[in-house]
């Protein structure tokens, strides 16, 4: 039960955090100018967005949950489960960000999940 809760926090916290960061960046809008000064300005605007803080907080939570579970479980058990983050990411992108995930993209995401699992087990 403890493992299941932590794995849920790792997958949903990590993915949810990145989705919240994506939401913050979408609010700022497409970046066209990549000069260091403009990137600094974008960073200042980003840290003023509540979604950015929620995202960083969720990612930190997922990171500490990963550290905690790795202190008693093997990497070969934990990391393949985290490969589910890619499926959760596509699902979250569709539901929470309104992205159109075509069958080809779903197939690609599925292959990435399988490939990441094999890389981590190998």
């Amino acid at each position: 039960m403890r493992d299941a809760v932590l794995l849920f926090v790792i997958v949903c916290g990590g993915t949810g955090g990145e989705i919240a960061v994506a939401r913050a960046m979408k609010e700022i809008g497409e970046v066209h100018d990549f000069s260091p000064l403009n990137i600094f300005r974008v960073a200042i605007r980003a840290v003023q967005r509540p979604w950015m803080w929620l995202g960083v907080g969720l990612m930190a939570l997922a990171f500490f949950a990963l550290l905690a579970i790795l202190s008693w479980e093997n990497v070969s058990f934990v990391v393949p489960v985290t490969a589910l983050s890619y499926a959760a990411g596509a699902f979250g992108g569709k539901i929470l960000l309104g992205e159109r995930v075509s069958p080809v993209r779903w197939l690609g995401v599925g292959l990435v999940c399988v490939g990441v699992t094999l890389v981590c087990l190998g």
Binding site: S102, V104, R105, L107, G108, V109, G110, L111, V112, C113, V114, G115, V116, T117, L118, V119, C120, L121, G122
Partner: peptide, 22 residues
Amino acid sequence: VTSTRWIGVGIICLGVFLVSQT
């Protein structure tokens, strides 16, 4: 790098190729 890992890398590349077509 084990053969399982290389196969995994190959499958990831295929998956990324499909995603890049969208």
